[in-house]
Design a protein around this nucleic acid. Sequence first.
DNA 1: GAAACTACTTTCCTCCAGGGAAGTGACTTT
DNA 2: AAAGTCACTTCCCTGGAGGAAAGTAGTTTC
Lengths: 121, 121
Amino acid sequence: MKKKAVLNNNALCQTRISAIKDTMEILSGKWKFHILGTLLMGDKLRFMDLLREVEGIGTKMLSKELQDLEMNHLVKRTVLNTKPVTVEYEITEFGQTLGAIIDEIAKWGIAYKHALYQKSE
Amino acid sequence: MKKKAVLNNNALCQTRISAIKDTMEILSGKWKFHILGTLLMGDKLRFMDLLREVEGIGTKMLSKELQDLEMNHLVKRTVLNTKPVTVEYEITEFGQTLGAIIDEIAKWGIAYKHALYQKSE
DNA sequence: GAAACTACTTTCCTCCAGGGAAGTGACTTT
DNA sequence: AAAGTCACTTCCCTGGAGGAAAGTAGTTTC
């Protein structure tokens, strides 16, 4: 008989694993963290603002990623009827809760660099 | 004169952004979170154990991802001189610190699902 | 001596994320 | 009427992530 997984085989683990998968799917791609991080700081930003703030992104990627985020209710899009149409993007209330993850990731990245530095001494 | 980024243009932001980039680079790919999550639970696991625990992964990916993680000092590899050679993988002390990120991500994933459920009512 | 188990590596192939560049359309300024 | 701004979309193309399968190599069991 073939051996089976033991550790990851109970309901609690499965919930956890699928929760991680879900989160990472929603935040997939090269730009989501960057966009969300920016949006978490300046609360209302227009398309062109984001294009400037998120260094390196192009229009195609930005609009696609924003659509993804909007679909998942993390970002709210508002069209203003100004002279040339402007569109405002802001983080939703629920999107705000991602702050904890992003903080944790940033914190770890900094700790990692420090740890490397100490090792190389 | 061309407009410039304002929000993300100070030293603090830049450190934060590059810290996030670093972390995500280290944890890039389809399997790293899954492998690390498993390794965080059962502290010493052999190659074949991981192959069984991490559902869906193949030998090539597993060995490549483990090499990546080892290179970044998150996982320790130990070869035992047993009958057929066995290799043990375990999370390093520093790798343990990733637990906080993984927990936060899992927590968020679960909260996200709950939020979706409430909206659809 | 054949098969099976350990831990991989290598080769080959496919798919798609993501980049560049150009186009659209509505309005404004010069 | 030409050029510019804002917010996109569309098209084309390429690199590389990742999967399947077979190969390597040492040892041990049948």
